[in-house]
């Protein structure tokens, strides 16, 4: 009998309350996924530390971007669309040319003794270079490495790099290590 006294709670406004909460969360939160190009900056060089020995010129791929967003690659102007192929050719040095990086035999898991090129990419930009261009160049260089790794892993394991196991990925990474060095800031030149 006493049970009859407790009336049923009216749930008609439940939808309104839920809508209100929903709208609050829609407004107060963001959904964007953070993604981007990850880089590790070099630590500051102490004055009393001896500078590292200079790298041979044939092992360095110099990319300059001036303030007009024009590229100068290895001493000659280049369009951004060709940068990726040029960088790939430099990194891998497929036909063992004299002006492209020297190679050193390195013992790598899964591959045995492998000729790894001593490549370094040096990227320099001007203070007036636009950030958009800089990211484009960074992206092309990263793409060159990624494509080479993909090609190698397809050839060796029959799978793209992203699907390899951790050990195999490490081995491929040892053959094509991403070495993009950015010079200490200075003005590369070009009209302001």
């Amino acid at each position: 009998m006493a049970r009859r006294d407790a009336p049923e709670v009216n749930a008609g406004s439940m939808a309104d309350i839920a809508f209100m909460l929903l709208i609050f969360f829609l407004v107060a939160t963001t959904m964007d996924v953070d993604s981007g190009i990850s880089r590790i900056l070099p630590p500051i060089i102490e004055d009393d530390v001896e500078p590292p020995p200079p790298i041979k010129e044939r092992n360095v791929f110099v990319v300059l971007i001036n303030s007009n967003n024009k590229l100068l690659v290895e001493g000659s102007p280049l369009d951004i669309s060709q940068l990726r192929d040029k960088a790939k050719e430099f990194i891998a040095n497929p036909s063992d040319l004299d002006n492209l990086p020297a190679k050193k035999d390195v013992e790598v898991d899964f591959f045995g003794s492998y000729e790894v090129s001593k490549q370094v990419i040096s990227l320099q930009n001007d203070r007036g270079t636009s950030y958009k261009m800089y990211i484009k160049v960074q992206n092309e260089l990263a793409a060159a490495y990624n494509e080479l790794r993909d090609e190698l892993s397809l050839q060796k394991f029959g799978k793209p790099y992203s699907e390899l196991s951790k050990d195999k990925r490490k081995a491929v990474k040892r053959i094509f290590p991403q070495r993009i060095s950015e010079a200490e800031p200075k003005n590369v030149g070009g009209a302001e």
Partner: peptide, 15 residues
């Protein structure tokens, strides 16, 4: 950032 030795950076970009 280098001076503060915060060396891990990420240039935020869209896909």
């Amino acid at each position: 950032l280098r001076k503060a030795s915060a060396l891990k950076i990420n240039y935020s970009t869209k896909k």
